[in-house]
């Protein structure tokens, strides 16, 4: 309750951060400061919200953010092999970005595609029933 009274105007902060994330692919310190100024919400609070949500990134990301699901249904359908395969293809580990700034890989929680396991999202677009062949084709299209 005291939260609400101290910062009555936080409404709209998350959509603002999401917009910045969608536009730039990440939220820079500069952007956080700008949003704080625009909204009058303290920077600590803006940073707090930005770092709470898995889809908001405060570090520079690749053009294509690959999120591979590793929750039980995908795990039981060999998501670990898929993660290894993508890491090998792109020559980076999960949580990293390729040197050319094209791809970032993240392991994520269930994306609600358990009937199409294993599944992943690239920039929020879902790809399911993945095989190494399929992934190769998808990555090729992005390159």
């Amino acid at each position: 309750m005291e939260d609400k009274e101290a910062y009555p105007d936080c409404l709209g902060l998350l959509p603002k951060l999401e917009k910045e994330q969608a536009k730039k692919g990440w939220i820079s310190e500069q952007a956080l400061k700008r949003i704080s100024k625009e909204t009058g919400i303290p920077i600590s609070r803006v940073y707090g919200v930005a770092t709470f949500y898995a889809h908001l990134h405060t570090e520079k990301q690749g053009k294509y953010i690959i999120e591979i699901c590793n929750s039980p249904s995908c795990y039981l359908n060999s998501s670990l092999n898929l993660i290894k395969f993508i890491e090998k293809e792109l020559k980076i580990k999960s949580g990293q970005t390729t040197k050319n700034g094209k791809f970032s890989i993240h392991i994520c929680s269930c994306i609600g595609c358990c009937d199409k396991a294993p599944a992943m999202m690239i920039n929020k677009k879902v790809y399911g029933n993945l095989t190494e062949e399929k992934v190769k084709k998808i990555l090729k299209k992005c390159r």
Binding site: S109, C110, G112, D115
Partner: peptide, 11 residues
């Protein structure tokens, strides 16, 4: 916000 792993009925 159907986040429970294994749940996709709402989708």
């Amino acid at each position: 916000d159907e986040g429970e792993p294994g749940t996709f009925k709402d989708r």
